[in-house]
Design a binder for these strands. Structure first.
Length: 834
RNA sequence: GCGAGAGUGGCGGAACUGGCAGACGCCCUGGAUUUAGGUUCCAGUGCCCGCAAGGGCGUGGGGGUUCGAGUCCCCCCUCUCGCACCA
């Protein structure tokens, strides 16, 4: 008896399952099962899911579903990165409150995610713009403040005129804003809140070594970003301008010494000048107003130089001199555009003979170029008209002459340290994270400015500091908090006198730095998260997301975990054990964007082909870590394939009985069992290694082709029990990639639950092995013929049989081969002289 | 310039350890089913020569190691991504 065959029409059953799964209570955690935390990067609720989301979640869901079938207790949550500027821009456009717009988008996107069948535990959903969440941003901010990890500082900051707010260094790439690629970032001098991520720089760098489950590319990017350099600080005493014994009068704020950072203290006998960054604070006490202005004019705007070039080096002599502590001789102090205030001490010693930049600069301005390092190999060539920048042997360096560079660096650092004019030190390129934003739609920073008490943290029991509901929205924008008097005006928690609230909000990267802890106890109102839950679930076993967060989000989140560990909130040093970065989906060779008109809308795909075909195609098109270009016909291929499976399954009855493992197959049963179990072994292996789901789906397609080929044998040469067993395995293997159609088939078969609730099948090794193999016969490395032999045939047998083949006899033409290579199970190569 | 990754049919890709290059899918062609179109099912499909049997060529280019190289080594070319005077 066969069931009536129906066409594959996913819209007739997918919504039904989606609804059922959305309402299903998450399976209760079972203590004895091993935990596995699968996390996908939470999306910004921009309005609708895009293909990038679909790819990210299709990968994560396949992994989560397969792990559940393998018996893990899987945590697979989802949430919304709901604060941020697009909501304000939308507010301006539609005169709609950012909260309304955001929550409406979330509702829609959650519905889309459900329609796709992504198996999230919706009871754990987190929305960062709700006070239940952001109060814990504020709570953590205050904890950081107590530890000195949150502090205020006046300094030059990146300002994006489009965003009308400050940006962190990580959010500026190539001189432009990360959200506005056509907007150069300006620099402004402002007082801002910072997180002291530099306190963790060394640990953030070292612990990268233990992140073996991360792509090397991401680790390299973070390593470069942190930028650790071993070197020394050296303090130079200053001499004001003036001739001989009559120094010119200097102001009270005049500095008496200057600290520089160098990685090459071994070259210090070759210093021609000290050079200060144009914005070095010491210059204010060294230069008269016109010169100071001249110095400030040297400061290049970030990204001012065209890409691929460096600005011409420019600077001028300040009139001051500094005493080289090693030689006792005065050297001129300059200021120049090529010295960065943000790195080291903002001042360098210029050693033109041994640094390319210093060489360019000193040659341009006619400063001397004394040589103090020679190559270790006496006959090695020395660059004629360039700096020799490698390590070597010191010359003209007083008592240090003759030492090699590495040894000299140690001794010279010790020498300067003994004189208390310097020390060996480590410098990082990484700078503290500027977290202030001058925007409305973010977490208010919980501080109060009191005329009497100064800066006062908002007491913990008064959290959250709520974002005011009523905010003026005009064509110019959403007012920031400074423009909302009801918010600003408050009373001092200490003295109760009138006071002002801090009006900056937090960078939204604060929200995403710890959201994956909030999933563990999303409704806890006594703490950001439950420590016992964190002990059970952290670290995240597998994080999946886009490479674009390689530095920003992933370094901030690592920093938060380390800080929270030091606060005693959690006990792991790293948040993400394994990281998988999926590739981009392009179309017509370009990133999908509305302006290019090359967007594929997941909603349209669901309507035409259903969620399963869309998910499966996204996985089939390429290995998940690679970029791929969207092909409209490709989805149709997967739609056809799922239809093939659906129809095949409908044509056959099912029962719940399993084939015994010691079952003795006969005739074509072997073929089906072997193919099924070989496919199963391949897919099981792929889940535990590369995640090349494209080959998994290809393997399932091959298997389905075999089913079609053998279908006339079903119930004849292939007994029903064998046919059913293989068919059931097919559906179970497909279930992580196309859960709807598999559930539908399961139900149509009259079986209980869904494939997702079944145990992942185990490949039977006695059925995967081939008993016969085809051996390639080569002559001089070229395939000439084939030979079918028992799989167990040894090399001697193979050689004997191969040499007896007519084709080989013809080729040999009576001569004897020079050599015969026989590899059991693979080939025989007969080597002859040409 | 520096760092990382990638170059395989008309297209996406497969070949994980050196052992039949092109699995699987798309496109295209033909056949069956169908009143017809669509759907479905089956077959063909790297390039060149050949009616065929068969042969030659072929994984960006050049060289090398090896019985044997898409895979290992050296040199070069192209593309993608990241970094951008970090002393």
């Amino acid at each position: 008896m066969t069931m009536p065959e129906r066409d594959y029409q996913p819209d007739q059953f997918e919504p039904r399952w989606a609804e059922r799964w959305a309402q299903a209570e998450p399976s209760a955690p079972e203590g004895q099962k091993q935990k596995y935390y699968v996390l996908e990067m939470l999306p910004y609720p921009s309005g609708a899911l895009h293909m990038g989301h679909v790819r990210n979640y299709a990968i994560g869901d396949a992994v989560a579903r397969q792990l559940r079938m393998r018996g893990y207790d899987v945590l697979h949550p989802m949430g919304w990165d709901a604060f941020g500027l697009p909501a304000e821009n939308a507010a301006i456009k539609n005169r709609r409150h950012p909260r309304e717009w955001t929550l409406a988008n979330i509702a829609h996107m959650r519905e889309q995610a459900r329609r796709f069948g992504f198996s999230y535990d919706w009871a754990r959903e987190v929305t960062t713009c709700l006070p239940e969440y952001y109060r814990w941003n504020q709570w953590l901010f205050l904890k950081f403040y107590e530890r000195g990890w949150a502090y205020r500082k006046r300094g030059w900051v990146n300002w994006c005129p489009q965003c009308a707010t400050v940006l962190a260094n990580e959010q500026v790439a190539g001189g432009v804003c990360w959200r506005h690629e056509d907007t150069p970032v300006e620099s402004r001098e402002l007082e801002q809140w910072y997180f002291k991520i530099t306190d963790f720089a060394g640990e953030l760098l070292r612990d990268l070594e233990q992140l073996g489950g991360w792509p090397e590319r991401v680790r390299a990017m973070q390593r470069n970003w942190i930028g650790e350099s071993y070197g020394a600080e050296v303090e130079y005493q200053l001499q004001p301008p003036g001739q001989g014994s009559r120094p010119a009068p200097v102001s009270a704020s005049a500095p008496v010494s200057l600290k520089i950072f160098t990685t090459r203290i071994d070259t210090i006998f070759g210093v021609s000048a000290l050079v200060l960054a144009p914005r070095h604070p010491a210059l204010a006490g060294m230069l008269a107003a016109p010169e100071l202005a001249r110095a400030h004019a040297l400061q290049p705007e970030r990204g001012a130089a065209p890409l691929g070039t460096e600005a011409e080096k420019e600077g001028f002599f300040t009139g001051w001199h500094a005493i080289n502590p090693f030689t006792g001789r005065p050297i001129p102090v300059w200021t120049a555009n090529f010295v960065l205030m943000d790195y080291g001490t903002g001042a360098i010693m210029a050693v033109p003979a041994h640094d390319e930049r210093d060489f360019d600069f000193c040659r341009k301005y006619g400063l001397p170029i004394p040589v103090v390092i020679r190559p270790s190999q006496p006959d090695a060539p020395v660059p004629a008209d360039a700096a020799f920048t490698e390590d070597g042997v010191l010359v003209n360096s007083g008592e240090f002459s003759g030492l090699d560079s590495a040894e000299a660096r140690k001794r010279m650092a010790a020498w300067i340290e003994a004189r208390r004019q310097g020390r060996a030190t480590i410098t990082y390129r990484l700078q503290d994270w500027g977290v202030s934003r001058q925007r409305y739609w973010g977490t208010p920073i919980p501080f109060i400015y009191c005329p009497d008490c100064g800066l006062v943290p908002v007491p913990q029991d008064q959290l959250p500091v709520q974002l005011p509901e009523n905010v003026p929205i005009s064509a110019q924008g959403v007012a920031n908090l400074a423009g909302i008097p009801e918010f600003v005006e408050t009373t001092c928690p200490r003295c109760q006198k009138p006071a002002r609230r801090e009006t900056d909000t937090m960078d939204t990267f604060v929200d995403s730095s710890w959201y994956f802890y909030r999933y563990l106890s999303p409704h806890n109102d006594g703490a950001p998260f439950d420590a016992a839950e964190a002990r059970r679930w952290m670290p995240v076993d597998q994080y999946i997301g886009g490479i674009e967060h390689a530095i920003l989000h992933l370094i901030y989140a690592r920093f938060f975990t380390k800080a929270m560990r030091d606060l005693g909130l959690c006990n792991v040093p790293e948040p993400f054990l394994r990281l998988f970065t999926q590739g981009m989906i392009t179309r017509h060779g370009a990133k999908m964007s509305k302006s290019k008109g090359n967007v594929v809308d997941p909603a349209d795909l669901i309507a035409r082909y259903g969620a399963d075909a869309t998910r499966a195609y996204v996985l089939f098109a390429a290995p998940p870590e690679r970029d791929f270009d969207w092909n409209d016909q490709g989805v149709e291929g997967l739609y056809r394939f799922l239809g093939r499976v659906y129809r095949l399954a409908q044509r056959h009855e099912m029962d719940a009985s399993l084939l015994p493992t010691d079952f003795a197959p006969q005739n074509s049963e072997w073929q089906l069992l072997r193919k099924t179990h070989q496919t199963l072994a391949r897919i099981s292996q792929e889940f535990e290694s590369r995640w090349h789901f494209n080959t998994c789906l290809a393997a399932i397609m091959e298997l389905v082709n075999v089913f079609y080929e053998l279908e006339p044998e079903a119930g004849k040469g292939i007994r029903p029990a064998v046919w059913r067993d293989c068919l059931r395995i097919l559906v179970l293997m497909l279930a992580p990639f196309a859960p709807f159609v598999c559930a539908e088939i399961w139900q149509a078969w009259g079986l209980r639950d869904t494939p997702a609730a079944q145990t992942w099948p185990r490949a039977n090794p006695s059925w995967t092995a081939e008993d016969e193999v085809e051996i390639v016969i080569q002559i001089n490395g070229k395939v000439r013929t084939h030979l079918r032999v028992r799989a167990s045939s040894d090399a001697a047998e193979l050689e004997r049989w191969a040499l007896g083949l007519p084709a080989v006899q013809t080729a040999l033409a009576g001569r004897s081969p020079v050599k015969v290579i026989a590899i059991p199970g693979r080939l025989v190569n007969i080597v002859m002289r040409p």
